[in-house]
Design a protein around this nucleic acid. Structure first.
Length: 484
DNA sequence: TGGGGTTAT
DNA sequence: ATAACCC
């Protein structure tokens, strides 16, 4: 096989390997007649249809920081390291360290239950996300030092597309083996590695080396441990990252994609299929990945529409063409607070003021200026009503344009805007009962952005009643003619 | 359940 | 503006 790849020099060859059985057939067939082992002959051997030649060409790493909030607290106070630690928000333990997990505490459990389970549990308040947010961006920035394609998912996960990094390492011609675990449900069954380290197998092996370097670098520079999953797309890299759990990494080769997907107990475990979609599919009698796969295409299409059906079905086969997209600066900055009861405008105003104060602090660091403000509330209603309502409006330029963000009058101006929105949400002439207020700044734009020359040309064009600024030449003549 | 985020409709 | 998705 090695000679084959050397002679044919085809990176595409292993893209034809669709499932493990097909791979085996190819393997067995090849050992009897090496010369006939070409992509074409492989196709005839197994009768497989490749979905896309380039489908296995990327190398994606998914990084998942181990119990992120707890790790941040343990770094800030190393004395917490060997104690059972929980992070508390209101009366919920939102996450905990591994010592606490060893005592049977699970994420998102009630404080009462957790303390009953483990009376020595140390609780730290995690309602203010500032430290976690800062560390989170340090992590993303760390990855960005090596590779531009980093996509954040929440505060503690990142996708990294290392395809180009892998390519340049391949140029050196060195062959490397896998670092860390290799995914296989039946763990004693080993992929005959060295024979397979060609094409995408070699690429993913290099990816696992890179992942290992990134992980140890992260530990050295920020003191954080994490899990990594390496695969040819985002879906699989994320799923496989969770297979060996704290502080380990796992690579998944394409022929194991089926096994990975089929190992999921429920379609809800597929990232991208949430509670709403699960319910719709469950209503059609579809609960398992296998059922989803064997469902009639047109049946699902009827129910979901062709586009969505295609995406969902693709996911069930471990296919995910979505690219890793650079996340960059956040699209919105928000803060929220939940409580048992808020039933007066005064109370609402005071709570909103706190939110706006801390948002202004963040805005100052961010450097950008928001152009819209949104207020959201949750009304107390019959349990199981998870409904939030929101109103938004454009922010008057005058408030933030070149204001001192520490100025309390700025806070009060914003608060006035927020309360106008609040009144649209709540009929304050009647009794009300709120359980959450959230304030969100969006449409964040660069502050120091001087209007570019283009802006002036466009404005001028408009004044002159020009059509599209198709020719800046023509425009320039106009400008000169008018002796500006 | 909490305190965040994103994108699609 | 809401609803879906993610952590």
């Amino acid at each position: 096989i090695k000679r084959y790849f050397e002679e044919v020099d085809s990176d595409d060859a292993d893209d034809y390997v669709e499932s493990e059985s097909e791979w085996r057939q190819g393997w067995e067939a090849s050992s009897s007649s090496l010369t006939e082992f070409t992509p074409k002959s492989m196709q005839s051997i197994s009768g497989l249809q490749s979905t896309s030649v380039s489908e296995h060409k990327r190398t994606i790493i998914h990084i998942d920081i181990d119990c992120f909030y707890a790790q941040v607290e343990m770094i800030l106070d190393p004395a917490l390291r060997d104690k059972p630690l929980g992070i508390q928000q209101k009366n919920i333990v939102v996450t905990c360290n591994y010592v606490a997990r060893g005592r049977g505490i699970s994420k998102l459990s009630y404080v009462n239950d957790a303390v009953k389970l483990c009376p020595e549990l140390v609780l730290v308040s995690g309602e203010d996300l500032t430290k976690y947010r800062k560390m989170s961006y340090k992590v993303t920035d760390y990855f960005l030092k090596f590779c531009p394609l980093v996509e954040r998912l929440g505060f503690d996960e990142n996708f990294i597309d290392v395809t180009d990094l892998v390519k340049s390492r391949q140029m050196t011609g060195k062959v490397c083996d896998v670092e860390g675990h290799t995914y296989s449900e039946s763990s004693d069954e080993k992929v005959p590695r060295i024979h397979c380290l060609c094409g995408c197998y070699q690429r993913l092996a290099i990816g696992s080396q890179i992942a290992s370097e990134l992980r140890s670098g992260l530990k050295d520079s920020l003191g954080l441990t994490c899990c990594a999953g390496i695969a040819h797309n985002k879906l699989l890299s994320k799923l496989v990252a969770g297979t060996h759990k704290p502080n380990q990494q796992t690579v998944l080769f394409p022929h194991q994609a089926d096994e990975m997907m089929l190992s999921l107990k429920n379609i809800k475990q597929i990232p991208g299929i949430g509670s709403s979609m699960s319910k719709r599919l469950a209503a059609m009698g579809i609960v398992s990945v296998q059922q989803l796969r064997s469902a009639q295409l047109n049946c699902i299409q009827q129910e979901l529409g062709a586009q969505l059906a295609g995406i969902i079905l693709n996911l069930s086969h471990g296919r995910d063409p979505t690219p890793v997209v650079q996340t960059g600066a956040p699209q919105s900055l928000s803060e929220e607070d939940s409580f048992k009861k808020c039933n007066s405008v005064e109370d609402a105003r005071n709570r909103s003021r706190k939110l706006i104060r801390s948002l202004l602090r963040r805005l100052k660091e961010d450097g950008r200026v928001p152009h819209t403000l949104r207020v959201a509330i949750r009304k107390f209603s019959l349990p199981k009503q998870w409904t939030r309502e929101n109103r938004q409006c454009a922010l008057p330029e005058s408030i933030l344009q070149n204001a001192n963000l520490d100025d309390d009058t700025v806070t009060e101006k914003l608060l006035d805007v927020a309360m106008q929105l609040f009144i649209k949400l709540v009929d304050t002439s009647k009794p009300f009962h709120l359980t959450l207020i959230s304030i969100c700044f969006t449409k964040l734009e660069d502050h120091l952005k001087k209007p570019s020359i283009v802006t002036y040309f466009k404005r001028f064009a408009k004044e002159q009643g020009c059509q599209e600024a198709d020719g800046s030449k023509d425009l320039r003549h106009k400008v000169l003619d008018s002796s500006v």
